[in-house]
Design a protein around this nucleic acid. Sequence first.
DNA 1: ATTGAGCGT
Length: 279
Amino acid sequence: MQPSNSMIPSPMAPPPQYRPQQWMPQQPQQTQYQVPPPQQPAATAGYYYQQPPQAAPTQQPQPQPQPQPQQYGVSPAAQAPADDGTRSLWIGDLQYWMDEQYIYSCFALTGEVASAKVIRNKQTGQSEGYGFIEFVSHAAAERNLMTYNGTQMPNSEQTFRLNWASMGAGEKHDDTPEYTIFVGDLAADITDYMLQETFRASYSSVKGAKVVTDKITGRTKGYGFVRFGDESEQLHAMTEMNGRYCSTRPMRVGPAANKQKVGGQTKGCQETYHIGAWS
DNA sequence: ATTGAGCGT
């Protein structure tokens, strides 16, 4: 569903430097931007990959039969984000013009990115708004996560939203209940990670946090959610953290009008109003 | 200003 009959100018037009059609193949087969292997065998760790040519013409990267990197599923019990062996980061809040090469170029300066991939709709070929970045090592991935998360994306007004890739199976076991709180009055610079760490400093059962952003502009809406594994910590946080500062502003903390995951627990489901009317 | 919805071949 799209507001097709409106003549709104695109709020964030792709900058002229990045015109996806220039290098995007017509057929959405090749979805992964694979790094060409370095000329000389990597003698030591920390070698540099060559940055792809700036204005790659209509030439598309040729897939090379490379040995698949070994990645095994993480333990289901391990909910910790930094499980060793994981070299992939999840990246969200992508705009449609942000393709593999763009994402790759964002991290190429570190010389530690191995590949970048944007998830696309199989039929339409359009970006689903997220992707994956594989790095040369877990440490490299962690370094880039810490360095870039929340910072400005090149040629964009928005900031990087990065997280550990969950690697498909394993992490979707929902027999562990979650207790979520609402956090409002967030400053504009607060990322998921900052919000999470702000609460984790006092509550060890914090599972994660998410700052809600506008899908179109990528800008924060000034509120978010923090998930707890322990109900008493959730309750404590609601009173103790209310008014506490995160970054430059005091937070407003309250109960989340949540759609809880199916788990047999209390279903406090309320009517969900479609937020489509910003008048 | 204020109650989302993100994990692939």
